[in-house]
Design a protein around this nucleic acid. Structure first.
Lengths: 214, 214
DNA sequence: ACCTGAACACCGTTCAAGT
DNA sequence: ACCTGAACACCGTTCAAGT
């Protein structure tokens, strides 16, 4: 008899040991010592497994104390969301869907709620608040996916990482930074970009509202 | 004898007819009327095929007239980048790597150049300009991937699209917008978010520079 | 109920052999 | 040179059959 808990634990073990790419139905079944086909009595399909795994991961996250200031609260919640997913880049792939919010249970929704609430409290209309959340979500998911894929590319022995010379007559500004690009691209600037984005989103929302637009 | 041009044309035909998921080495070979193994005399591997396909796609894009104002130029170039990839969401998956710039030839680099140049002209330091580009890139790639996956989820008959009721005691702000969320999430707000982001990035860069920080 | 092997319909890629 | 079938090492999923 195989339980839900056993399956999720084995899946985590498999990911931690062999990497996310190696989590397949067949390998997971082998890890559990059962036939691949037996697994289908406990999960609907592979996506169902991934959603359950993600839900389990997020549910054990401790909820941080959020700042009172709406802007800071948005930043803090977005950062928590980012950090939760940064360790689990495959989760970001699962979540690349606007409907992801509907897939998660309440234990994960507080992050979405905090961002929408922060925008509301700052004076955004409901439309604007949803827009604030979606924009931040796009930025966050993009950052995680790009960084995860880059890390894989750098650790793989596949060589063509980055051409670091450019035709100065065609792309002068790129040519000027080309030698430093690699070092700069490796820096973690998520938080910096996030703050800039939140500033811009809230400023635009405020001016749109005062203009009577929106 | 099979030429590079024939292969790329057949690949495009396959994607247009059957969808991006159906582009496999074996199907492409069949489309060309050759053995799967023969294809490996013309391409290094599947990734090589995808990069060539993407390069070909971007190279036939017409380069728009870019505004003189640095801020507007950044927005215009980012929008061009977005539009070029929005039609080809699979390309965004190929490009989810910080090193992607090094994979592309000069025919595609003008978009990157225009953004970096716009930031430079606005008074950003090289560090800040690279940061501006990377931030915009994360947002753009995130938006494209989320929307592409959402579209697939909506057209698929797989039902669990979005739970549109929330526990008002747990997530009151989400509960308040839940009925309108779906309609709002479907709206194309890329340009709106982009403008807010560029505003925020340039404002932060300016204040960091005047503070002597950065 | 719970589990199974065999099978279906695929993948990307390699290799030794053919013309 | 250019192309090939067969094979390797996999996938997710279904189905009829077993205990």
């Amino acid at each position: 008899m195989t339980s839900r808990a056993e399956i999720l634990t084995a899946a985590r073990r498999l990911i931690d040991r062999d990497g996310w790419e190696k989590l397949t139905i067949r390998r997971l079944a082998a890890e559990l010592g059962i036939g691949a086909t037996t697994l289908y009595h406990h999960i609907r399909d592979k996506e169902d497994l991934l959603v359950q795994l993600l839900e389990h991961h997020i549910s054990r996250l401790q909820r941080p104390q959020l700042p009172r200031d709406p802007r800071d609260r948005i930043v803090a919640a977005a950062t928590a969301m980012h950090d939760a997913l940064a360790d689990w880049p495959w989760a970001a792939e699962v979540l690349t869907t606007d409907g992801f919010v509907g897939l998660l249970d309440e234990s994960a929704l507080w992050m979405v709620e905090a961002i929408v609430a922060g925008a509301d409290d700052h004076g955004c209309t409901p439309e604007q608040s949803v827009h604030v959340f979606r924009s931040i979500w796009y930025y966050t998911v993009g950052e995680i996916l790009v960084r995860a894929h880059t890390a894989r590319r750098l650790t793989d022995e596949k060589l063509p990482v980055f051409r670091d010379s450019f035709d100065a007559s065609q792309v002068p500004h790129l040519a000027a930074v080309s030698k430093r690009w690699r070092a700069l691209a490796v820096r973690d600037t998520y938080a910096e970009g996030l703050r800039a984005f939140v500033d811009g989103l809230l400023a635009r929302a405020a001016s749109a509202t005062s203009d009577g637009v929106g």
